[in-house]
Simulated assay, not measured.
Amino acid sequence: MMYLAYDYPLLNVFWTMLWFFLWVLWFILLFRIITDIFRDKDMNGWAKGGWLAFVILLPFLGVLVYVIARGKNMGHREISQARAQQREFDAYIRETAAGAPRPSNAEELTRLSELRSRGHITEEEFSRAKALVLTDDRPAASPAPGTPPTPDVPPTPGR
Score class of each variant (00 low, 15 high):
Met17Tyr: 05
Thr16Cys: 01
Ala84Tyr: 11
Ile34Tyr: 06
Tyr66Ala: 11
Ala131Glu: 09
Ala144Gly: 02
Met2Leu: 09
Glu107Tyr: 10
Gly45Met: 14
Trp19Ile: 08
Arg94Leu: 06
Asp7Trp: 06
Arg77Cys: 00
Met43His: 07
Leu64Asn: 06
Arg83Cys: 08
Arg116Ile: 01
Gln85Val: 03
Trp19Met: 09
Gly119His: 02
Arg159Glu: 15
Leu57Met: 10
Pro154Ala: 05
Gln81Trp: 13
Met17His: 02
Pro149Leu: 08
Ile121Met: 03
Ile68Tyr: 05
Thr110Phe: 02
Pro145Ala: 05
Phe27Trp: 15
Glu123Gly: 06
Phe31Leu: 07
Pro155Trp: 02
Asn105Met: 05
Gln81Asp: 14
Tyr66Ser: 10
Ala98Val: 03
Glu78Tyr: 10
Pro143Thr: 02
Arg159Tyr: 13
Leu132Trp: 08
Phe21Glu: 06
Tyr6Phe: 06
Ile79Lys: 15
Asp7Glu: 11
Met1Val: 06
Thr135Phe: 02
His76Glu: 11
Ile79Val: 14
Arg111Asn: 05
His120Leu: 13
Phe20Ala: 13
Glu88Gln: 12
Ala141Cys: 01
Asn12Lys: 07
His76Arg: 14
Phe20Cys: 06
Tyr6Pro: 00
Ala97Arg: 10
Ala141Ser: 12
Asp36Arg: 05
Phe31Ser: 07
Leu29Gln: 05
Met2Phe: 06
Ile34Thr: 08
Ala98Met: 12
Phe126Met: 03
Thr147Gln: 08
Val67Ala: 12
Ala53Asp: 01
Ala91Asn: 04
Arg118Thr: 02
Pro103Met: 03
Pro149Gly: 02
Ala84Gln: 15
Ala140Lys: 14
Gly71Leu: 04
Phe89Met: 10
Ser142Asp: 04
Arg128His: 13
Arg94Ser: 03
Lys41Ser: 10
Thr150Leu: 13
Gly146Cys: 03
Met17Gln: 06
Phe38Val: 00
Gln86Gly: 09
Ala82Ile: 11
Thr150Asn: 05
Thr96His: 10
Trp51Gln: 12
Asn44Cys: 00
